[in-house]
Computed example of a mutant assay.
Amino acid sequence: MKRRKFLLHSLGATMLFMPGKSALAKFRSDKVPFKVSAGRGRFNESFLYKGKHPNDIKISGKDTDGKLAMFEYIGYDKVGPSLHVHFDQDEVFYVVEGKYRFVVGKQTILMDVGDTIFLPRNVPHTWIQLTDIGKLVYFVQPAGKAEEFFRTMNNLKQQPSKEEIDRIHEECGMKVVGPPLKL
């Protein structure tokens, strides 16, 4: 009988300290879950990096109120971006497939499947794929204009001039500060 009484009193005390509906309301969101299927981009958009390599939005800044964007890159060549800097965004890359060499500031870091790298804002960086096929999942925080950058570059009808590339980077909070890596 004492045990039953103890359990009832414990339950009652717990109920007194549980947050009410108003306290729980602050944790609610008007956001809804969604799925982005393999080989697809968010909003059914697909971007091709350098006209060949899928670089799809998986989570848009629109989904996170600008706090984060997530991309999936699939590389079919041993290429990578020019040495560049993001003024307002950090990046996190996770290697799903292949091997990569990242240069971040003065450090060179070799990356293999399962490795993760953090690239802080305002630090010049680049990477190159070292294998014939590779896949990266990467996050940009905050989302900034990363999506706009890839959308603009993807929709160009011809190879942009250096001046156009510099202008697009500047409009999206970045700057090219050197050439891409070579093997």
Rank of each mutant, 00 (worst) to 15 (best):
G134Q: 04
A23W: 10
K106W: 10
M174V: 04
Y100I: 03
Y138S: 07
F17S: 07
V177R: 12
L110T: 12
N155Q: 14
R40W: 03
R101D: 00
P124A: 06
K50W: 14
P33Y: 08
Q158S: 15
F17C: 10
R151S: 12
P120G: 13
V104K: 04
H125G: 14
D132H: 04
E45S: 02
H84I: 05
G39L: 10
L181A: 01
D115T: 04
F102Y: 01
D63H: 00
G75S: 13
K182M: 09
T14Y: 03
V103Q: 14
Q158W: 11
T14I: 01
P81W: 01
S82M: 02
L183V: 14
A146S: 14
T116F: 15
R121Y: 09
F43P: 07
D132V: 13
G41L: 02
M15N: 10
S60Y: 06
G20S: 10
V104L: 13
E72Y: 04
G80H: 04
F150S: 02
L8K: 14
V140M: 01
L110R: 15
A13S: 09
K162F: 06
L156H: 13
Y49Q: 09
R42F: 10
V32C: 05
A23C: 07
L24N: 13
R3H: 14
L181T: 00
Q158P: 01
E147K: 00
G61E: 06
K67G: 00
L183C: 08
R3C: 08
R151L: 10
D30W: 11
L183D: 12
P142T: 08
H9G: 03
S46T: 03
G51S: 09
E147V: 02
M70K: 01
D63L: 09
Q141D: 15
A13M: 14
I59T: 05
F17R: 11
L48H: 12
R4C: 01
M18H: 13
S10T: 12
E147D: 06
K58P: 09
P33M: 05
A69G: 08
